[in-house]
Design a binder for these strands. Structure first.
Lengths: 206, 206
DNA sequence: AGCTGTACGTACCGATCGGTAACATTGTCA
DNA sequence: TGACAATGTTACCGATCGGTACGTACAGCT
């Protein structure tokens, strides 16, 4: 019984994510989202997190990698929200996407809303090889795929066009949500999506 | 004949816009748009423009003001494109907005496309009091007003919702244009707008 | 010619940027 | 107790940030 330690697995996990790293990621997530990645320096992050700067660079190889980690976490949380709307309406892609968009429309009206972290990161980093941008691009590509798939499930005459139209509405809601704040156009994203869907599907009885 | 200098009026004009200032604004426009405002330092601007740094600060009180000037120029060029589509189809707001969106959809497919300079600036500067953001917000507010007005002219059942829906599609095209590049969802912005419009207008003979 | 105002360039400022070296301290295991 | 991993402390690096003090070249006017 050399290493049958009961928390060995747990230790291995913490080995990869020490306590300081989690605090750093929590703070980075908050500051990056609210003020932008370029606007926040590493000094401000470690100061707010109450940790030392070397702790940041022991857990993340660079600020760019920290930004990418922040976005990977954002990506996970995004799909949680998305899949929650999907599983709430099994077999009904129209209701699924509308449920998701209703949630988006509501969040855009809250004071702290600042759009989609991944969309914003892609705007901040136009270079194709930036690690943060790569996470964003992967997320958007997958979202596009899912939306086109759902549009197909709705029986759209041109599923790819409808899927892309829904993506345009979503991105538009992200942006105008942070541009206009409460009372802005993003409030109507679900309503407009419903109109677009109904105009795109082939009515069975027509 | 004390001051009947033939170039006096011209001089007064140049007084307000010295030669160096125009070169600076040209370079700033190019670099800011392609790489982002925060990504470009004033040193790179003056180096590329081939002028001295004090020339920048004699014409612009700060980098933020230079960014605002860049966006004011962007705003003028935006409305030129918009009004060109409008005047091409007098009295037909549906054709007007579709002509504009066709142009947007085409531009999103070009390699150098990086979205809307004002939208991007608003993402880069979330603070409400930033001079660059103010220019962007003013532009978007006016655009929203015009779109709702056009939607009313189309006879939409809910003109405000349609106008906002068109704005969402436009902003979505800006963003996904720079996220996906050629072949992305922005290509279909005019098609989706046409679907949304037709689903929103009250058919006279129905 | 001499004066004046204007545009420009050289050189520099303090502050902050992202990132690191070296070492002390802590807590948790065996 | 001894080993080890994680964290903290301090001080530092070169580069770049936005911004400026100050001198100069040159124009038009008298």
């Amino acid at each position: 019984m050399a290493h049958d330690n009961k928390i060995e697995g747990h230790e291995a996990e913490r080995d990869r994510h020490p306590a300081a790293a989690e605090k750093i990621l929590d703070v980075a997530r908050d500051l990056f989202y609210r003020q932008g990645i370029r606007a926040i320096g590493v000094d401000e992050i470690v100061r707010t997190a109450g940790v030392a700067k070397p702790s940041l660079y022991r857990a993340f190889s660079s600020k760019d990698e920290l930004a990418a980690s922040y976005l990977r976490r954002y990506d996970r949380e995004f799909w949680e929200r998305f899949d929650k709307a999907v599983t709430a309406h099994p077999g009904d892609p129209r209701a699924q996407i509308l449920a998701f968009l209703t949630g988006v429309g509501e969040r855009t009206q809250t004071p702290s809303y600042r759009g989609c972290g991944m969309t914003n990161a892609a705007v901040e980093y136009p270079q194709a090889d930036h690690p943060a941008r790569k996470v964003s691009e992967d997320n958007k590509r997958e979202l596009r795929r899912r939306l086109r798939e759902m549009a197909r499930g709705m029986g759209a005459a041109d599923a790819d066009t409808l899927g892309d139209g829904l993506l345009l509405l979503i991105e538009g809601a992200y942006i105008s949500g942070q541009l206009f704040g409460a009372g802005g156009p993003a409030r109507s994203v679900a309503r407009n999506a419903a109109l677009l869907i109904d105009a795109s599907v082939v009515k069975p009885g027509a």
